[in-house]
């Protein structure tokens, strides 16, 4: 049990993923929702690295680099949207933006 294998990394990654999902669904502040999305993307990277090590293949590390690039772009655009929302509503609370709820 103490011997750390790929399974341990996968369990850790799923726990981080679950925490991130809770953050995305439960928080009212858009800044922390974006942070939770970063947590989820990070847990994906842990999966990639664990399987890359298990298989002795570098491809997992390459894909983790692409995931980081996507995360960087997502953070930039997401924070741009957040600033636009703040300019429009003077708040970053997500329950203030309810035009689509009919």
């Amino acid at each position: 049990m103490l011997e750390v294998g790929t399974t341990h990394y996968l369990v850790l990654s799923f726990l981080l993923f679950a925490i991130g999902v809770v953050g995305i669904l439960a928080r009212r502040n858009m800044i922390t929702v974006l942070m939770s999305i970063e947590l989820v993307l990070n847990s994906v990277n842990i999966n990639f690295i664990a399987f890359s090590y298990q298989l002795g293949d570098l491809t997992g590390q390459i894909f983790a680099i692409f995931t980081i690039a996507v995360a960087a772009g997502e953070a930039a655009v997401g924070l741009g949207i957040l600033l636009a929302l703040y300019r429009l509503r003077e708040t970053t609370q997500l329950d203030g933006a309810t035009e689509m709820s009919g």
């Binding site: 669904l25 009212r28 800044i31 600033l83």
Partner: peptide, 25 residues
């Protein structure tokens, strides 16, 4: 850049928080 003092939220979590926790569990 955003004014944090105006962000004083009454509660940190929204109305979907219990559902989110159940889903995660």
């Amino acid at each position: 850049l955003v004014n944090l003092h105006r962000l004083r939220e009454s509660s940190v979590f929204g109305e979907y928080a219990p559902m989110a926790v159940v889903l995660a569990v």
